[in-house]
Design a protein around this nucleic acid. Sequence first.
RNA 1: GGAGAGGUGACCGAGUGGUUGAAGGUGCACGCCUGGAAAGCGUGUGUGGGGGCAACUCUACCGAGGGUUCGAAUCCCUCCCUCUCCGCCA
Length: 426
Amino acid sequence: MLARELLRQDPDRVRQALTDRGAEAALVDRWGDLDADRRRFLVEVEQLQHQRNEASRAIGQAKRAGEDASEAIAAVGQVKQQIEALEAQLATTDEELRQVELALPNLPVAEVPVGADEAANRLERQVGEPPRFDFTPQAHWDLGPSLGILDFERGAKLAGARFTAYLGLGARLERALIQFMLDIHLDEHGYTEVLPPFLVASDSLVGTGQLPKFAEDLFRIADHDLYLIPTAEVPLTNLHREEILEESALPLRYTAYTPCFRAEAGSHGRDVRGLIRQHQFNKVELVHLVHPERSAEALETLTGHAETILQRLELPYRLVTLSTGDMGFSACRTYDIEVWLPGQDAYREISSCSNCGDFQARRAGIRFRPAEGGKPRFVHTLNGSGLAVGRTLIAILENYQQADGSVVVPEALRPYLRTDRIVAPG
RNA sequence: GGAGAGGUGACCGAGUGGUUGAAGGUGCACGCCUGGAAAGCGUGUGUGGGGGCAACUCUACCGAGGGUUCGAAUCCCUCCCUCUCCGCCA
């Protein structure tokens, strides 16, 4: 949610930001109308309420004094009706205003390159060298089944397209990666581990920005106000929804392993093969709640934490800043980490690290009381994958594959997997 | 799922229709007292939304949402959550 002061005082800036994002700038004008209406109704209602309160007080006094108050009661009746009528208008306006506010995306910060899509993303750095093969590297959708560790057909039998069964060392590798990632974030980066619910109520999804606009991307439980989480960002960020924290409690850093569930509406035909785009995938998530003046540096820190995992696994990657047109709804700035996938001869997203500023904090009501006292202020929230586990598994298979079709296990992972090589069943 | 009890401010806790935004206490802040501290005394101490936009002022909020009433924390309805017992289950 954007600050109302900002929308009132600098609507042009908001309009420009929406245009840069490819969003509907006219929403700002709609907002302005509704806001003006709302304030008009509000002033009027409150004046009438004041009248009524005064009158009721007088009635109370009269009655206690044993006087007849029927005349005064009749007189207030009129005010009461006016209030009811106006309150109805106010409620309608309020609700429309809220809907508009919930539909407005966050504003990109100045550092974000302006552009319509990923073509405008800015390359920040490239780390590690793509491996050279003296054979044609396979894609994981060939490697996985031939190693007997990924079973796409049986996954589809169980649940349909975009579901996969991991078998044997595949399952074990996925689990090892989760453990490996969590250990680093806990022991070296100082996060608090959380095992949250994998289902959340709609309030939480509104808090982080998935609802009301992106309902079609979510799986909803029939007959309940419950959704499968699309990312642990939702439960982790909402942990402190509607709370006022002490400033001394900041920054808060949470990490969680969770499965993530996405309906992938509108992505028919994209990444239909392999593990890249699934309805269910595993992810280790990083979330920060920080003082508003610290969020820019926190984004660098958080992104660094995600990068650490790739560095330890010795996987080549690059870091890009998403353009205005490519950024997510709640973010004011986003880095994508893209890992090199030899089987596809391309860098593919493996982590997305965003600073959401106070956008989610406003929606979710996450505030802190300044140490020096005074009004509560909104925290800034950040989130990032550290990392997407399935895609990390893909990267290992494709980058560490050998001419004979086996896969060497990265050094750092061997204590977890207790083998140094994944070989096709004899 | 069934039965019962309960949800009040940072916390404890009073309050069943009329200056109650809410007694009292604790905590916290400031002041007095003290050589210093404790104790004691005094004052202050919620959040949101409006208007002036400074002092100030109005309004809403006692789990949430409706209703009754001139007036509701207090009465009625629905829902949510917590606790206890039963059932069921991992």
